[in-house]
């Protein structure tokens, strides 16, 4: 168990270091982040001004832009794990990876985690500079930030499992790009990346809390605007929901992987 954990950490570290080698790519993403955050600022500036309210979903305009900065940084940090798994299955390079002394899904998850944490840190740093320039600082509490960091890690793990499910479906589907597109868009909209869940119509909000999507984006970032008195309870509730989703999605990945292995055929050469 300890050895497996050491291997997983080593894979995550290698993946993280590989991503630190491409600062140009990071800068490229920063340009897009600037464009997106500027558009969001203009959209929400107009919305706040025309609604005549200083707070929407409990957030001021500056807090809304910071909310969107974090959600966008999370979203843009997602590596293309599903496409990589799909490619491994389709090209047969999966056979080579099966030789490794580590389960393929676990290898993918830890590499994904290492890469994502680096990308997220860069995006967040860039996004924070942009948000500071556009709307200035907001009041942040240390304990809320710590809880955010923990729940973001769980969210990334959950998203990694979602990507694995999409990628592994390549064993049965001719093309998984459609499924990938649907999964990512559902995460974007139902996850509350573009608009906080509190602004959803009541029926939709009541429905999406039973799906894993809000716990990938909205749940963690929402902690920052949760009142101090409710913070611990909200974090605990979020952690329980995230862990429940983690168990369910892990079981699904395990089942898919078990079935998929029966379909693997490797040849020499």
């Amino acid at each position: 168990m300890l050895k497996t954990a050491q291997k997983l950490i080593a894979v995550a570290k290698i993946s993280a270091r590989a991503n630190l080698a491409y600062p140009g790519e990071v800068l490229g993403r920063g340009t897009f982040l600037l464009v997106v955050l500027y558009i969001f600022l203009k959209l929400w500036q107009a919305t706040y001004s025309e609604s005549g309210q200083s707070k929407l979903a409990g957030l001021s305009l500056a807090e809304m832009l910071w909310y969107l900065t974090i959600t966008e940084s999370m979203w843009m940090s997602a590596p293309k794990l599903a496409q990589q798994v799909d490619e491994d299955v389709r090209t047969g390079s999966l056979a080579v990876k099966l030789i490794r002394p580590l389960s393929y899904p676990l290898y993918c998850l830890s590499a994904n985690m290492g890469e994502r944490l680096v990308r997220f840190s860069f995006n967040l740093a860039l996004g924070a500079c942009i948000a500071l320039a556009l709307v200035g600082p907001i009041h942040l509490r240390a304990e809320a930030l710590l809880m955010l960091a923990l729940s973001v890690c769980l969210a990334f793990l959950l998203d990694g499992l979602g990507h694995l499910i999409v990628g592994l479906s390549a064993f049965w589907l001719e093309d998984t790009s459609g499924l990938y597109l649907i999964y990512t868009r559902l995460t974007m909209i139902l996850g509350g990346m573009l608009i906080p869940l509190d602004l959803f119509p009541g029926w939709l909000k009541n429905l999406v809390v039973y799906l894993p999507f809000p716990y990938l984006v909205w749940g963690p970032v929402h902690l920052l605007s949760t009142p101090q008195a409710e913070l611990a309870a909200s974090f605990l509730e979020l952690a329980i929901r995230q862990l429940a989703c983690l168990v369910a999605l892990s079981a699904l990945v395990a089942l898919l992987w078990q079935r998929a292995l029966r379909r693997v055929s490797a040849h020499g050469g």
């Binding site: 790009s177 499924l179 597109l181 608009i195």
Partner: peptide
């Protein structure tokens, strides 16, 4: 599958805007 996925993708975006304008009927 790719054709339908793109239709669904765009529908999701449209759904976001419909949710947005349901809450804030006219913006600019």
């Amino acid at each position: 599958s790719q054709f339908l996925a793109m239709v669904l993708n765009n529908s999701t975006w449209l759904a976001f805007w419909l949710i947005f304008f349901d809450r804030f009927p006219v913006v600019r």
